[in-house]
Each structure stands twice: as structure tokens, then as C-alpha cells.
Design a protein around this nucleic acid. Sequence first.
RNA 1: GUCUCCCUCGUCUAGUGGUUAGGACAUCGGGUUUUCAUCCCGACAACGCGGGUUCGAUCCCCGCGGGAGAUGCCA
Length: 492
Amino acid sequence: MDVRVRYAPSPTGLQHIGGIRTALFNYFFAKANGGKFILRVEDTDRERYSDESLEDLYSTLDWLGIKWDEGPVVGGPYGPYIQSERFDLYKEYAEKLVEMGKAYYCFCTPERLEEVRKQQVESKSEYQGYDRHCAHLSDSEIKENLRQGIKPVIRFRVPTEGKTTFHDILMGDISRRNRDISPDPILLKSDGFPTYHLANVVDDHLMHITHIMRAQEWIPSGPLHVLLYEAFGWDVPQYCHLPMVMGKDGQKLSKRHGSTAVRDFRAKGYLPEAILNYVTLVGWSLDGSTEFFSKEALEKCFTMEGIHKSPAVFDYKKLDWFNGQYIRQADNDRLASLIAPYLQEAGYMHKPLTEEESALLSRIVPPVKERMKVLSDAVPLTSFLFEDRPVEDKAVYVAKGSDEASTAAALSRGSAILLSGLKSGEEESSIEEKLSALASELGIKVNGVFQPIRVAITNSTVSLPLFDSIRLLGIDETERRLIRADKLFEEN
RNA sequence: GUCUCCCUCGUCUAGUGGUUAGGACAUCGGGUUUUCAUCCCGACAACGCGGGUUCGAUCCCCGCGGGAGAUGCCA
């Protein structure tokens, strides 16, 4: 049997790390087994639905390079793949269950349900959930309610006896007494839309899904779904519940832990291959030592056996490390085009780039790529080129182990050495030697000479390498800034 | 409350009835370097606890503890 798996998100929010991890596992499992990866949009919650979420779903998968074999846009033999477009289908199946006596109409108002819930909490009842008030209405009672225009929901009749077991590839057999299953969950809402339980089971069956890989938060409803498959007389697919992705505090990863939307990571300057690589390693490993995986490699080597049972904490620092690694590996031209938007956003460059800017950009990349964790780091790293904010505080120019007098001397004499060297096209290493010699003459450390020069030129003690900075800035501007710093020290 | 699942360094993980319990991130220290970063070297650091089974348990069994998830006309 050919493997068919699906990612079935609900477009009620931006695609987040947890969701995308599920998508990736499904995708890689399908690819590694020569199967099909199906995308299905579960937009049955009309209150929380948003177009933006749907667009975000497509753009995020696209950014990661994840293509679906069947689904919205591309179509497929079992479409449509958007649940709202399958509206009639669910009603049909729900009513089929009603006819079989396995489901029933319920006319309870939300107010009454709320009241029941409240009482259960107050009385600390062991049983929670619906009290099956409408489980045994007579035909005439149902007709009367319908005649009055009350919109019913359809509830599934959960057996009160026995237990239901399903097999999970990772977890093994998971059983639950039927009486512990939430009593009589709603299958079809009063607005005619199905709930997750119904739509999911119906669609997975109709779309011939072979393996259901979803987050562990669904384990408790596994038995219910099995009951549903059995009620319809359908085969139960294979289950594989994925470990959850947690935040630092061990709770389910959410916004309060930091960014969780993939879009946010993208905006900050994470590369898709870094996200893809790291996210796949959350809850999965090949051998415990291999860390770098390309998408293509994972499409071949991903196995279910490598998936873990226990939840995993999402480590932002490790993601940063991965991103830095991938940035360093990245092609310079690609990096240039990836960095450009950040510099444009900062107002440093025009959109589109002028020819000069484009040329400058490609010279910026090599020194900058060694120093970035995220692409947006390029902005602070190069700001000295685009906005001149001279350091007024003399103390900043003074290196450790030096003093103001030596610094003043280092600055004026060092500037002279530097500028004449640069203008005469002298080797950088030779200029460097002379500056070092100056340091020992002044009786200070090498940095005692370099630091004031660096601060003068880059307006910061932390910068790109000095000669790189000068090359990017140009000799004239370098000279201007050196003279200005020199004056600062001459003033008193 | 009830049900279900989980438990190896701070974090992600490898691993075995007998190992110096391995790797990576983070942290700390050192080296290279004009700063920062990169890069290199090193250090710290784990089998939740208690019973069994066994010549021997991190590994097998039981209990406890801790954590998480579910308990919606959300998915």
C-alpha cells in the first residue's frame, strides 16, 4: 500500500513552529517512502478563520520549499481539499450515523450546557461533559423542536461500556474506557459545519490517508476517532503521535516564549534551510550525532523510528547557531540579495538598488557574513557606512592599558601612517606593522593604537575589521573622520 | 477532579544487562586575531526516587515522584 499522509492545519492563525514541524515530518515521511504528501485546509471554525492565515500557510510552505502532491491550488483525485468546500459531505455522513442510531440530534442551548458544566465543577463530579440530555428524544419531540426552528447539533453516541484501543506506531497500544471518553461529542455544529472529529475522520477516509501523523495533544481523542471509523465501518489508519514542542518552561510552545510564527523568523532573517534543519531535529534524530541535514537528504533518510516519544523544548539559541552556520555556508550573491531588504528597510539603500549600492553590497557581504546570526544583523554591522554618529566621549577611544595622552598620540601619528600608506597603495600588512611599531614606541599594546582609529572610523569599539571598514567607507571619508577625532583630542 | 502520555548533562539527543555513559547547543577557560565575530583546543555537566529480578542494573518489572496534554457548537 502506498503511503499517503497529510498536513491538515486550521487557518486560524499564522503557521507556527509546532505546526510546521508536523508538516515537515509528514512531508519527509512521504518522500522517504515514495508516498504522497497531501495538504488539507481544515477551515471549519468560521469564527476564527482568516484569509491572512490561509495565505500565510501557502507562503510559509513555499518559503520552506515544501510542495504538496495533492491539495488546494494543485488539486488531486480526492478534492476539494478545503473543508468548507466539502460542506454538504459532512452533513450527509453525520445524518448517516443518525439513521444508524449511532448519533442523534441535540437541541440543548449553549446556556444550558454552560449551566451543566458549572454544576459539574461545583459538585466536583467525576463525570464531566455533556449530560446526554437529548440522547433519547422521541421522533415527535425532535420534529417539534425542528418545527420551532431550533437548529440542532448532531452528537455521536459514545458507548458507556467497554473500552477502545488504538495502536500508535511510537507509543504502542493506547486504551481508554469508553466511559472516559468525553460523552457524546458534537459531530455537526448548529451552523451545519462539522467539528474536527467528524471532518477529520471522513476526509482521512475519503482521501485514503494511510498514516496519521499529528501532535500528541490528539492522543486523548484517538479512541473517539477509532469509534467513529468503526461506526462507519471503515478501516482505521495507522497512527503516529508526534512529540510536542515546548517552550523553555516546559509548557506547550506559545507566543509568550518568543516568536513562534515562521513568518516572524523569516522577517528577522533566518534562512529556510536553517529553520527546516533545526525544526526537524526537534523530536527526531538519525543517529544522535549527525546535525546537518539538507531538505534533499531528509527526503531520503527520514524514518519514523527516529521520532521520539517525549516532548522537546525548542531552543532558540541552537536555532541561532544553525542559522549562523548556514549563513556562513551561503553563497555571497545570494546573501547580498537576502541582506538588501534589511538595508533598504533601514533607509540605507534605495529600492531598487542603484548600481553603486549593488556593488557596495557585494563588498559588504564577505566581512559581514562571518558575524551574523540573523540577516538583520547586517544593519547594525554596517550602519557606520550610512549614518555618521561620531563618538564624543574620549574615554571610548582609550583602549585598556592605554591612557588619554598615548591615545591622542596614537591617533594623530597612527592616522598619518595609515593615510599615507593607503594613499600610496602600501600593503595592508605593512601598514599594520608600522602601527604595531608605533604602539611599542608609545609603550602601549597594539590595540592601544587600533582602538582609537577604529572608533574614529567606525564610531564604535566593535566593528568589522579595520581595513575592511576603510575599504567600504572610502579613503576620503576615512580621512575626514580621522581628522575629526584628532581634533577632539587636540581641544584641550 | 478524571483520563492519557512522557522522564539520559541547563537544552536537543546517542546508547548498552558489564561503557571513562558519546555528540551538539548553551555556559566557562584557553589559543588565533587590531575590536567583535569566525575558527581551533579544553573544562563543567545527566541516567528523577524507592523497591525488586540479576553475579551485575541507566537499560527489565513494580511503586512513588515530577512534567505535559486532553476533558469546547477550537482545532
